[in-house]
């Protein structure tokens, strides 16, 4: 585990305690790029959450007469799609779907993966071998291929997307959690806790989890952007969210043929995917630096 370097100006006051998380917050507050990306992310998340209240039109109500309106058209700020549906509304609602489909699997993987990884790492022996070799089977496939294969087998729809993406991310989290657990388990402070008579749960709770959750969380956050891209990708291929629901990947697919008629509007969902996944990447990078976890 890395030893925190003291940020200058903090902690020099004699007796001033400086908790780990306060140090992390202090570091983040100094990191411009992360702050900008974080604000952007907040904006995306907020607009997705508030879509039902802030979107100007029904995202599924089309109009034959207003197909593929330009950006800036009256009452359609971001134009309309190939069925004449308001793009701004669809992007807001689509963000809900894409974020849900992107974040949920990582969250599920974070919880299940940590439980599995910590158990395997702490138990060692045959349990460890069984769990880790099973994970290796999944890990051997490229993420995209695995996601497509599982989704293909399960069929389209949001629940199946969530399941297949969770299966993609669980083995990755398990690996990180397991190796962090094995590393921390061998440190002397864990032996010291055992020597004082602490049981497995007390050691897990006070010594292991406290020291491995940080790195695992940072790792999980690096996977969110990939998960968003995979979720959008599955929809794009018709294996994810089904029409007419608005979802960025699906929108990209249906607008694909219109690119010669109107180049700007079809690019918007792609831009949304790009900006959101970039923002997630930058924030997780910043988080990793602030927590001083070496990749």
């Amino acid at each position: 585990m890395s030893i925190l370097a003291l940020p200058t100006g903090v902690g020099v006051v004699v007796g001033a305690p400086l908790s780990y998380w306060r140090t992390v917050a202090w570091r983040l507050s100094r990191d411009r790029a992360t702050l900008v990306a974080g604000s952007l992310l907040l904006l995306v998340v907020l607009s997705a959450v508030l879509a039902p209240w802030i979107s100007p039109h029904d995202p599924n109500a089309g109009s034959i007469r207003q197909r593929l309106a330009e950006v800036g058209a009256p009452s359609h700020v971001l134009g309309t799609d190939e069925q004449g549906r308001d793009m701004l509304s669809r992007l807001l609602w689509g963000g809900r779907m894409t974020l849900l489909a992107g974040l949920t699997p990582v969250l599920v993987a974070f919880v299940l993966g940590t439980v599995l990884g910590v158990s395997a790492g702490y138990a060692g022996g045959i349990t460890n071998t069984l769990v880790m070799r099973t994970m290796d089977i999944f890990y051997a496939f490229p993420a995209v291929l695995l996601a497509i294969a599982i989704s293909g087998a399960l069929g389209p729809g949001l629940p199946n997307t969530l399941i297949s993406l969770s299966i993609v991310f669980i083995p990755r989290v398990v690996r990180v959690a397991e190796s962090a657990t094995v590393q921390v388990k061998g440190l002397e402070y864990v032996a010291a806790a055992r020597a004082s008579g602490a049981g497995v749960w007390q050691i897990l709770r006070h010594h292991l989890l406290a020291n491995i959750l940080g790195p695992v969380l940072v790792f999980a956050s690096t996977q969110v952007s990939l998960s968003i891209i995979l979720a959008a990708g599955l929809s794009f291929l018709g294996l994810g969210v089904t029409p007419p629901a608005a979802e960025w990947g699906l929108m990209l697919n249906t607008l694909r043929q219109s690119i010669y008629v109107n180049a700007v509007v079809p690019a918007l969902p792609g831009l949304a995917i790009f900006v959101t996944s970039m923002a997630f990447n930058l924030v997780s990078d910043g988080l990793r630096d602030a927590m001083e976890i070496r990749a």
Partner: peptide
């Protein structure tokens, strides 16, 4: 009780 060898690894950083 045991006093451990490595003063860097023997205290939980958290």
């Amino acid at each position: 009780q045991l006093v451990f060898q490595d003063p860097h690894a023997s205290l939980n950083p958290r």
